[in-house]
C-alpha cells in the first residue's frame, strides 16, 4: 500500500480576488523507500503538492491519503497529529527557530508530541547527520549546510514515514548541496521513508528514484530509474 496517495486532486487559490488553479486533477502514489523528485518551473504546483501531501492544506477536490487515512475528513488536532507522527519537513531556508539551540530545535517535534527522553533521541538524530557535538549551538552559529543538516535531523526525529523537502539545496553551494542530497538518499534507504523533494535543480533530480515533472498543475512526465 502506498504511504502517500493523491487521487484526482485539484487545488484552487484566490489570488488578488481571482481564482488560480495550482493543481489540476493530479494523481500520484509514493511508497516507502522511494525518493521522488518534483521538478518544474516556478508556480507549476510543486509547493502546493507538498502542502497537500503534508496535511497542511486541503484539496479543492479529490482525495489525499496519508498512510491510508483521508486527510480531508480530519479535524485540526488529528491533522496536527499526522504531521507530528507521520511527516517530516525540510525547507529551503532551513526554518530553524533561532531562539532555540540545535538540540532544542531537533527535539521540538518530540516535545510537541509530549514524548520523553527527547534529548537522547535528538542526540541520536544529530549523529545520523554527522553533527555530534554541535547540539549546544544556536542556528546563527552554524553554516548553511550545517543548518540544513539540523533541519534534516529535526525532520527525522519522529522517524516519519514521509519526508517532504522543499528545495533543500536551494540555499546551499553545489558541494554542500550534493552532500545533503546524498544524505537524504541514504536516509531514505536506511529509514525506509518516502522522500518527496521539490527542486529546480537537474542535479538534485538526478539523484531521485522517480522524477515527476509538473507543468501548469498537472503531471507532464514521470521518469523512474
Amino acid at each position: 500500500m502506498p504511504i502517500l496517495s493523491l487521487q484526482s486532486v485539484t487545488k484552487d487559490y484566490l489570488a488578488e480576488g481571482q481564482p488560480v488553479r495550482a493543481l489540476h486533477n493530479l494523481s500520484l502514489e509514493v511508497s516507502r523507500g522511494e525518493f521522488v523528485a518534483l521538478v518544474g518551473r516556478s508556480g507549476c504546483g510543486k509547493s502546493t503538492l507538498l502542502s497537500l501531501a503534508g496535511a497542511m492544506d486541503f484539496p479543492s477536490s479529490g482525495v489525499v491519503l496519508v498512510d491510508g487515512v483521508v486527510t480531508t475528513s480530519l479535524r485540526d488536532d488529528a491533522l496536527a497529529r499526522i504531521r507530528r507522527e507521520k511527516i517530516g519537513f525540510i525547507f529551503q531556508s532551513f526554518q530553524l527557530i533561532h531562539t532555540l539551540t540545535v538540540f532544542e530545535n531537533v527535539e521540538l517535534p518530540l516535545l510537541l508530541a509530549g514524548k520523553k527522553a527527547a534529548r537522547e533521541v535528538a542526540r541520536d538524530r544529530l549523529s545520523w547527520v554527522e553533527l555530534d557535538g554541535l547540539g549546544a549551538r544556536y542556528p546563527h552559529q552554524l553554516s548553511g549546510g550545517q543548518m540544513q543538516r539540523v533541519a534534516i535531523a529535526r525532520a527525522l526525529v519522529q522517524s516519519p514515514a514521509i519526508l517532504l523537502a522543499d528545495e533543500p539545496t536551494g540555499n546551499l553551494d553545489t558541494s554542500t548541496g550534493n552532500l545533503i542530497l546524498e544524505l537524504l538518499r541514504r536516509l531514505t534507504r536506511e529509514q525506509n521513508t518516502a522522500t518527496i523533494m521539490a527542486t529546480h535543480s537537474v542535479e538534485a533530480a538526478a539523484m531521485a528514484d522517480v522524477v515527476v515533472k509538473l507543468r501548469d498543475g498537472e503531471i507532464a512526465e514521470v521518469t523512474r530509474r
Binding site: Y13, L14, A15, E16, G17, V20, A22, S42, G43, C44, G45, K46, S47, T48, L50, S51, G54, M56, D57, F91, Q92, S93, Q95, D166
Partner: peptide, 13 residues
Amino acid sequence: RLKPWPADGESTR
C-alpha cells in the same frame, strides 16, 4: 498559512 513557505502564486488581498 501553516506552511512556512508561500504556496504557488498565493497572495490574497
